[in-house]
Amino acid sequence: MNNEFLEIKDLKKSFGTGEARQDVLRGMNFTVKKGEFCVLLGPSGSGKSTLLNIIGGIDTPDEGFVSINGDKLEEMNEKELTMYRRKHLGYVFQMYNLIPNLNVKENIEVGAYLSDNPLDVEEVLTTLGLQNHKYKYPNQLSGGQQQRVSIGRAVVKNPDILMCDEPTGALDYKTSKEILALIEDCNSKFGSTVIMVTHNEAIRNMADHVIKLRDGVVRHNDINTNKISAMDLEW
């Protein structure tokens, strides 16, 4: 297997036209190895969510390409992109986006359904500490519990890449740490490559690979050799 699992090459993206044109990505280059915990850091407007969306195949670059395992996303048609997301990606958003009239277990099954080799739903429920809540509906859960379900829905697919867009953005300190620990767990336990977008500087300490973005370009591309556990993070 190619060690450089994800390759981002000369990626450019802008929104709007004329005077209103805004270059969000201005030639971005980096690679991520398989199984890496990669954090994309940056302030608002630095282009990190756009980058994540392009990697996730739900947005397209104006120039450059994203290649996963040697396959260039730009060469895929819509159907192939859907299959790519279906087979390789797990998504976790800041807003949990759970289906309101499915219970916790069923919401996780929504992810399992898409995968050819899903993890055991019960096992995921146990890992996420949701066994006692599995028959509850999303509106009966706290924000942290809902985010656990959302992570469960993503990891149960056993994805190659787990994409996390500000997963702790709407959570308190304690819950945030718990959620990060869970993602860390998934990374180590299931071997998923994690790409996490955040503006929380503290999170860089738990990552293998930290990419700092500003104004649409990579400012720092560091490998963290002193990573610490999520539960030890402080901010």
């Binding site: 739900i58 990606l89 797990g90 807003m95 986006n97 759970l98 309101p100 898409l114 697919k157």
Partner: peptide, 10 residues
């Protein structure tokens, strides 16, 4: 957003 998430998930 659920639809968006589902579509993003595959």
């Amino acid at each position: 957003s659920v639809i968006g998430t589902l579509r993003a998930s595959g």
